[in-house]
Design a protein around this nucleic acid. Sequence first.
DNA 1: CTTGACTCTAGACTATACTCCAAGGTTTAT
DNA 2: ATAAACCTTGGAGTATAGTCTAGAGTCAAG
Lengths: 135, 135
Amino acid sequence: MLKIGELASLAGVSRDTLRFYEKHGLIIPSQRTESGYRLYSNIDVERISFIVSAKEVGFTLNEIHQLLELEVTKDKKSCQDVKEFVDNKITIVNQRLLEIEKIKHSLQTLSDACCGGDEPATQCTILGALNEQAR
Amino acid sequence: MLKIGELASLAGVSRDTLRFYEKHGLIIPSQRTESGYRLYSNIDVERISFIVSAKEVGFTLNEIHQLLELEVTKDKKSCQDVKEFVDNKITIVNQRLLEIEKIKHSLQTLSDACCGGDEPATQCTILGALNEQAR
DNA sequence: CTTGACTCTAGACTATACTCCAAGGTTTAT
DNA sequence: ATAAACCTTGGAGTATAGTCTAGAGTCAAG
């Protein structure tokens, strides 16, 4: 079991952030010591790392909360709901993948093409690079 | 040339957002009418669409501003600076790509596996699906 | 047995990114 | 020619996601 400071430095967030996430129901420590110190388990480690990843790729805390709440209990009703919600997110994620690929490609173009090469000057801004790639 | 409302609905943002971005130097209309109406060009259309994409994949307005400011003028000095900055961003983008792929995969697992199948219940939450994939 | 590093709660403060409003001017459709 | 639909600026307000502070308790090492 980890104390808050240990989990914080492991996850690369601040103690305050962990307490803030707890207040908003995202990560609630499995236990407390008698004196009230939070104690986090391995599952909590996974949980915070998911939260951090999901946040980095543009999900809001609210969306992350919903994702973490998801639980398919195999009865048809919950399944239907979850599938709908998840498929929706997959669509969004796919769009983001395309967008991030596009941006990556143009950053690459920008990095590669403009250093002493004799490419046209149109490639030498991010928008130029984006257009180059669109052709 | 487009008026603010036209560009706004084209880009899927509000007029206020466009004016907000202008105040922060992200997109400044090429022209104004005599009466002071903003007029946006095709380049502005590309620009706002870049801003929206970059935002969606998790760049801040500040970072986007820096990306849009980039311009390699082929003299070595500017090139060095730009390359450094851009390569840095590429690293970040690559990390995000991995993270978003991982999340996509587990969403997919969650969507596919838990509807009437007889997969173990461990796959039936987002964290379960993430772990499944890690094996 | 006390000092320093850690933890607790509650609440105030901050940054980012909008979003809305007021009070007025402009354009367009009937 | 007048109403509806657009546009202007400036400034206030809101949502999200922390971040910081105060005042107090806890714990491990010397």
